[in-house]
Amino acid sequence: MGITLTYTEQELVSLLRNRDNKAFAYLYDNYAAALYSIILQIVSDAELANDVMQEVFVNIWRRIEQYDAGKGRLFTWMMNIARNASIDTLRSRSYQNSRKNQSIGDNVDTLQVKDVLQPGVDTIGLRKVLEKLKDEQRILIELAYFKGYTHEEIAELEKLPLGTVKTRIRNALIQLRGLLK
């Protein structure tokens, strides 16, 4: 974006807590695109991503008091808000869809890589990095990070022991760190 940093993170947080409109404009100009990318990786639909984006900024506005600098950077906090809002939207939508399609039948057995990984959006962000992982690791990160399933749910879906799920996810994350460097 080419905008030079005018606030330290601390200054920015205290201005946001005062509901400073300029600070929110600054936040948007510097981080909206990065957050939009994260949203798109999860919801994939642009129209839906716009709604989620709106929700994310409202949430940042409302919950800025709850941000604890001791637990992580502001961007990490915002990124998790974006991820959670995206997954929630996806779930409420897929819930509605599954209600509509109930008569078609239930083929929610073991999920295959092609069912889980969405084509088209895996060229951006973390998804691009994840391409370098083995399929058996990718699918677990996909379910855990992009779909928001718990380790227990994944173990059930993939018919794997819980310990194996945990180990594979940990190993995938360790590799991810190396790939991001």
Binding site: A33, A34, Y36, S37, R73, L180, K181
Partner: peptide, 16 residues
């Protein structure tokens, strides 16, 4: 790790 994640996210940003 936070910084590398943040830099990566900014590097792969998509303009809304």
């Amino acid at each position: 790790f936070e910084l590398s994640l943040e830099q990566h996210a900014i590097a792969s940003q998509v303009a809304p």
